[in-house]
């Protein structure tokens, strides 16, 4: 596969390592009353869709950026690639 890195352009997927569901960015609030339940779901319960999926890829043999790649797991079509740091900021993780 080719992943179109937002900064570096098209790169072979062999340069990346894969982590999985990009929901891992949304780490729960450890101080919430429901923290134990929230973290249980965060750590263990994730969707595994046959179709469009937002995934985390690490450009290990590249610029060491974590990316959020929107990929169709059936066709391998990739519709969007973003810097995970920007996505995290967009989700209000800046504190």
């Amino acid at each position: 596969m080719i992943i179109d890195h937002p900064l570096l352009g098209p790169r072979d997927s062999s340069e990346f390592t894969y982590l999985g569901d990009a929901k891992l960015i949304e780490r729960p609030d450890p101080d919430a009353e429901t923290a134990t339940r929230d973290f249980y779901e965060y750590a263990y319960l994730r969707d595994n869709p046959a179709g469009w999926h937002e995934e985390l890829w690490f450009h290990e043999a590249g610029d060491r950026s974590w990316l959020v790649v929107t990929r169709n797991t059936l066709t391998h079509e990739i519709s969007k690639v973003e810097m995970a740091r920007d996505v995290a900021r967009g989700k209000g993780r800046s504190k």
Binding site: T17, L24, F58, W66, A84, R85, R93, S94
Partner: peptide, 13 residues
């Protein structure tokens, strides 16, 4: 890799 994940994805600022 894990430390970069924590830095970029969990505590980006």
């Amino acid at each position: 890799r894990h430390m970069e994940f924590v830095r970029q994805c969990l505590f980006p600022d």
